[in-house]
Amino acid sequence: MTTPAAAALPYAEFDGRPATEDDLRRALLVNYAHFTAMQVRGGRVRGLDLHLARLDAANREMFELPLDGGRVRGLIRHALENADTADASVRVYAYPRLADTAVTVMVTVAGPARMSPEPRSLMPVPYTRTAPHLKRPGEFGQTYYARLASRSGFDDALLTGPDGSVAEGAIANIGFWDGTAVIWPQAPALTGITMGVLERELPGAGVESVRRAVTLDGLGAYRSAFLSNSQGLAPVARIGDTDLTVDEALMKRLTAAYEAAPDEAV
């Protein structure tokens, strides 16, 4: 990366300036950080308020400092302008400064992405993340079990507790459908932004949305399941040895509810 005008994707800025090798080296070596990931289309983001609230809450918990949403929006706009794109996958990371009096914000810009709509198979694994309500880089366990699931013939891993409680996918939330309502597992997990948008929008679309405990031995109570993350939605066809119905009508309803949510300029 030489100058903003010459930026090519992927592109990164630290506090509004092009990233240097030292910046990137530090980001690679320091894993005490938090982040959020979003899809930007036409310079706008669905659930932007949730992204900004996530960053601020995590920053207060980890660094005992607020992270101003106006500052974050300005840094995202600056990075998008220098990358010369309005459609992108954007990540915003917060790292502690050496003086420990403020935080350094890294914004990365890559090409836009969308989750494949192909049905997924999930391998249940006995793992839950430390402080799962925080979105953090460098999660070894998620990557380890996702790769193990792939080697075992599954598309991804499903994180579960010692009691068999279902928590979340390796990099996505999971929701279940019992024929009348969407059920989000009530277990230690990250509340994803797409999940948060759906929780706000589904009741207005005539779909009940609740949180309650889901266990592996109780999967038979659900007709269908789906994954959600910043890249979109995908149906789940199998969890371990349990087959689920791929409900195309349900996926259309979920997608319509999400896309009906207002977006906001960064």
Rank of each mutant, 00 (worst) to 15 (best):
A57T: 12
V246L: 06
M195V: 00
E61S: 13
R77H: 05
T2Y: 06
G220L: 11
A94T: 12
A5P: 01
D68W: 13
I193Y: 00
P124S: 12
Q142L: 11
P18I: 12
E168T: 00
V30W: 13
E21N: 08
L148C: 11
G161I: 07
V197Y: 01
A53G: 09
T242C: 07
A187H: 15
N31K: 15
R26P: 01
M195Q: 02
V107Q: 06
G218R: 15
Y32D: 13
P96S: 12
P4R: 02
P235A: 03
T215Y: 11
A260F: 11
M251Q: 08
F226M: 09
H133F: 10
A234L: 07
A79M: 03
E81W: 04
G42C: 13
F14L: 15
G161C: 09
A149L: 06
T85W: 14
R238A: 02
L122D: 00
I239K: 10
G138L: 06
L67G: 04
M251V: 04
R147D: 05
H78M: 09
R212D: 02
V166T: 09
M123D: 02
G141P: 04
A187I: 09
T245R: 13
G192K: 02
A265E: 14
E248P: 01
A88Q: 05
G196V: 03
D155L: 06
Y32W: 14
A260H: 14
Y127W: 15
G192W: 00
V105C: 05
S165A: 14
A181K: 13
L55N: 09
T2D: 05
R223I: 00
A187G: 10
